[in-house]
Simulated scan of single mutants.
Amino acid sequence: MERKRILITGAAGFLGSHLCDRFIKEDFHVIGMDNLITGDLRNIEHLFKLENFEFYNHDVSKFVHVSGDLHYILHFASPASPIDYLKIPIQTLKVGSLGTHNLLGLAKAKGARMLIASTSEVYGDPSVNPQPEEYWGNVNPVGPRGVYDEAKRFQEAITMAYHTFHGVETRIVRIFNTYGPRMRLNDGRVLPAFIGQALRGEPLTVFGDGSQTRAFCYVDDLVEGIYRLLFSDYVQPMNIGNPDEITIREFGEEIIKLTGTDQELVCHPLPTDDPKQRRPDITKAKAILGWEPKVSRQEGLKITYEYFKSLPDKEIQHKDFTYYNK
């Protein structure tokens, strides 16, 4: 039987590369696409030798062509960390708008089912906790984070429009804080920032008083949730994340304990529009997909720490980043 063909954009990124691995494992023909603006070919170089994997260096904000049959599209091309989308705001807006439009057009032409990667950032700085899918959010469209938040909100809107108006089969996943191997050590997110600082023997930077919360999901759990959502019949947005909530200060203390270091936590002013709390309501994922996270934070952090420790010293010592509580 001929393999089903799936296009994964952002294939060389953290999440995209793990999704490539999963669909290769499930015996799909995987077409990876990435312009490498934030992705890294090292994440997928182990796949290049396989007959059922091909890669295209392409910016999906420009016209996207894939020859032959195409059954599924996973749109994961987007800067996802604050250091990236604050550095390249226009590209972030374009990949969420023009890129999504191009790929929805491709899905329509090919009769493919398309899943888009949205984010918990659509909830902004929430006034409810945990955040259910019905919550419309509290987002500043013209603040520094607006380029990412509004790109994702538009992405959801145009995806739903293609579903209702053109009948395209679509799925929308709202991803909460995710971590694991292949994260960039200095990408501006709290977990790699903390571990990087610990490895360098530096104080851990906490923004605000550290009382703001996050909920961290291990990448394997997230990939399983995405896989189940793609093959479900559910077309509304769905939260996928780990509801095990922790304050940033407590999380910093966990990292210090994990790394066996004795650094102190140093507080800095809170960035503009930084969410005070973040925790997914996964009632729908449990009921509809039969999904919930399996990997404990303790277990996942140990694997992730070992990955970061194995990186070349020049990457560990590189400190050109601004850390945000994401």
Rank of each mutant, 00 (worst) to 15 (best):
Y323G: 11
I246D: 03
P130M: 12
I24E: 06
L191G: 00
K286V: 13
T92A: 10
P181D: 12
H75K: 09
G300P: 08
E245V: 15
D27V: 06
P243L: 10
Q212Y: 07
E121T: 13
F55C: 03
A193E: 08
E169A: 13
L106Y: 01
I288M: 04
L230N: 04
V122L: 08
F154N: 09
Y179R: 01
V30F: 00
V142E: 14
G188F: 04
L258D: 07
G290F: 02
P269N: 05
V30T: 03
P181T: 06
A215S: 15
Y162D: 11
G196K: 09
T322G: 04
A117C: 13
P312V: 11
L103K: 03
M160V: 10
K286R: 15
F55G: 06
Y72A: 02
E133C: 03
H18R: 13
I37A: 10
I248P: 02
L47P: 08
M33E: 10
Y323E: 15
K284E: 07
I175M: 11
S17V: 05
R3A: 09
S118F: 01
H46L: 08
S81F: 05
E245F: 08
T159S: 13
A77R: 06
G180Q: 12
L50E: 11
D40P: 04
N35R: 14
P130W: 06
I88N: 07
A107Q: 08
F321G: 05
A11G: 14
A193P: 02
E315F: 08
V235H: 13
S61C: 11
G143V: 04
T259S: 15
Q212R: 10
N129M: 09
K87Q: 11
G111P: 09
N242H: 05
E250V: 05
P192W: 06
F23Q: 01
I226S: 02
G68E: 00
K257F: 11
D84L: 10
Y85K: 05
D27W: 03
M1R: 12
L15M: 15
G241D: 08
I172H: 02
D149I: 01
F321K: 01
N52Y: 08
R174W: 07
N325R: 10
K284F: 09
F63R: 15
T259C: 15
T164P: 00
Y323A: 14
G143K: 02
G188K: 01
G225C: 13
A12N: 00
L86P: 01
R278A: 14
G32W: 01
N177D: 14
H71I: 00
D244K: 14
I303A: 02
T283M: 08
R5K: 15
P269A: 06
K326M: 10
G143W: 00
N242M: 01
R278D: 13
P126F: 05
K110W: 01
M160K: 13
I288Q: 02
F251V: 03
S232V: 07
G137C: 11
L93T: 06
H318M: 13
V128G: 03
N138T: 13
S97I: 15
